[in-house]
Structure formats: structure tokens, C-alpha cells
Amino acid sequence: MTATGTGYDARFRIWRGDAEGGELRDFTVEVHEGEVVLDIVHRLQATQAADLAVRWNCKAGKCGSCSAEINGRPRLMCMTRMSTFSREETITITPLRAFPVVRDLVTDVSFNYTKAREVPAFVPPQGLAPGEYRMQQVDVDRSQEFRKCIECFLCQDTCHVVRDHEENKAAFAGPRFLMRVAELDMHPLDAAESEGLDRKRTAQEEHGLGYCNITKCCTEVCPEGIKITDNALIPLKERAVDRKYDPLVWLGSKISRRRD
């Protein structure tokens, strides 16, 4: 059974180039029923541009590799169905803007791996042997939501603190890794405090939480639907506030009540 009968030709503009520079190139390519943008990129590789660079892996929205900007919006190519565009529309695919281009749609995401290393790891509680951990589901729910993160880095890409401000990158961990701090902070058995590590304070002082002005762009692009701003960043700000006044917390607490 094939879907050839329902196929049509779509117009694409895809950024091709490398660190030296590049340009949008036009392609016309066949599209079949039920396909996603990544299918079309693969068809281009197989038929028109064998050396078109693209990063991908699971093709099911679980690994977070195929991040790109589709018509200017950060998205996973494997989870963007062609049926969401009209047949007449020209679809533009560009690499993630916040990170340096390697080639074509592939960017250098090492910023994220550097930031991951700056967040101190889980500290196991003293006196509890493996197998003796006891936690209630309601207490792990919060951190579990953040652990759904597939590290697609779309939130890192869209966050305007770094999107057009290279100079902020050194001081700002980005939504993904601030959320990692929140995740560890809310872990029922994390023993960071016993080692003199105050995760809330480090969020503010070492990971740049203060830069975040809770515009919720990160939440909007999250393919996992994680409420990054409401459930991770704002609570982290609220927890930090008794140490350091942050006027945005007041605003944040207003906005966060507008939950659906």
C-alpha cells in the first residue's frame, strides 16, 4: 500500500552553509500523506542533496536530536506534520539560531553540555543503603515532570536571554538547566544541604536565574509540554526570594495563576 496517489510537490527553503556563511536554497520535493518535515529532509538527502547535514535519531519525538527552526519557530522536525501547512506554502527550515552553525541544519550545541556540567549532581542521602529509599509518588511527581525533558534544547534556543545576546551565555544556564536545578532541589532525598550546597541560592547566584523575566517562551516551545516557567523557574524564584528580592516574582505569581 502506498500513499503516492495522495502525493503533491511542496516548496522548501532550506539554509545551507557552514560557519563561514551560507544561504537559503530552494527545493521542490514530493510529499506524501502522513509525513513529517523530517521525512521531507530525508527525501531530499536521498534524491537531491546527498550531503545535506541534519541531526536526527529516534524519529518519534523521544530523543530531541532533530531540533530546527521551521518558519522561524523552534520545533522538532520529526514531530512537525506536513498536514499543518497548506500545500501552497513555502516551508523554511533554518538551524537553531542561538547556537553556532556547524553545517546546514546542524549546530554546535556544546553550550548545553558545558552548562550541564556546572550544575552539581544529585547528592545521595547518608545512611540510606541502595534499596532503602522510600518516597511517595506525590513527592516525586514534581521532579518527574522535569525529568521528562528530552534535551532538544528548543527552550535554550528560544530564550531571548541568550538568543540574541551572546554576552549573556557565560552567566546564564538557560531554562533547561535552571529546571535541572529545580528538579534536584525538589528531589525528596537530595542531600545537597548536608554538604553545604544551597541549590536555590546557586540558581540565583551561579546559574543566572535573575536574567529570566518569565515570558514563558521556553514553555511554549517545549515538545514535552513541561511547564518550565510555572513549575520550575517561578518556584525557584520564590524559593530564592527570601534571600534576595526579585520584583519579577510578584509578577510571576500573578501570571502563574492563569494556569489551564
Binding site: 545521595p124 529509599y133 522510600r134 511517595q136 516525586v140 528531589h187
Partner: peptide, 17 residues
């Protein structure tokens, strides 16, 4: 169990296991 000591968060039973 070792994964738990590295920070894994599995779903829990009512008695917390």
C-alpha cells in the same frame, strides 16, 4: 537500586518503594 542512588526517580508504590 543503584540507579536511585544516582538520582533516578522511578514511579512509587503506596509504601514508597
Amino acid at each position: 537500586w543503584e540507579l536511585e542512588t544516582w538520582g533516578a526517580l522511578f514511579d512509587r508504590t503506596p509504601d514508597g518503594k
